[in-house]
Amino acid sequence: MIKHENIETNAGLLIVLTLIVISIGGLVEIVPLFYINDTVEKVSGVRPYTPLELRGRDIYQREGCYLCHSQMVRPFRDEWLRYGHYSLAAESQYDHPFQWGSKRTGPDLARVGGKYSNAWHVAHLINPRDVVPQSIMPNYPWLQTTDLDYSDVQARMRALKKTGVPYSETQAEFDRNVAAFGPETANKLDILHAEENLMQQALTNDYDGQRDRVTEMDALVAYLQVLGTMVDFSKYDEGYFAEFR
């Protein structure tokens, strides 16, 4: 038997035992979620981010947008009325780390995709007060003038693949993605063609309104425009989602 006195006089032992006690609390809450069947809703449409969106997401984190914006619409009436459908677990299954956030200085962004035009986002990010006079959001003018560095986008996708995001490298993985997401999306999730796909998406959509360049603005707006748009909620009865809680 370890005596109380032994623990109190041995800092190393005290630390180890404290960690064990604390982790029990975490494990009891988290581990069951991995084997309870009803955690992640089975909905179609949710896919990993394309290389351009992924870089946009990196910039979102770099700039600390999550400090003022949550991405988690909660199942309450007032949020439903303001933002739309509450967020599903399935919608952030490929997000590592997730961007739920915990502070709403600005509005929730989980369903901002498609709500505004690209031109609005560009004007708003350069100087929010140009379009929303009373806004307290900071300016991000450098996004529009900094070329996007995408030299390491393949490495970033590989890192996410290790956490279970289905980006493909081998033919077998590619075929699996074709079956899961269809050929068009599967192409965009192919690590080996990441740079090409990124360039193509940026140039065809021209998010930043500068035809000849691919800037950080292109990436961030591409990311914002896809948020919350992947699931077609008209395909499901609301009661279905209630089974997962």
Binding site: P75, R77, W80, Y86, E238, G239, F241, A242, F244, R245
Partner: peptide, 11 residues
């Protein structure tokens, strides 16, 4: 009819 949960409550 379902067990108590916030989603059903919202509906």
């Amino acid at each position: 009819t379902t067990h108590w949960n916030t989603r059903a409550l919202l509906i």
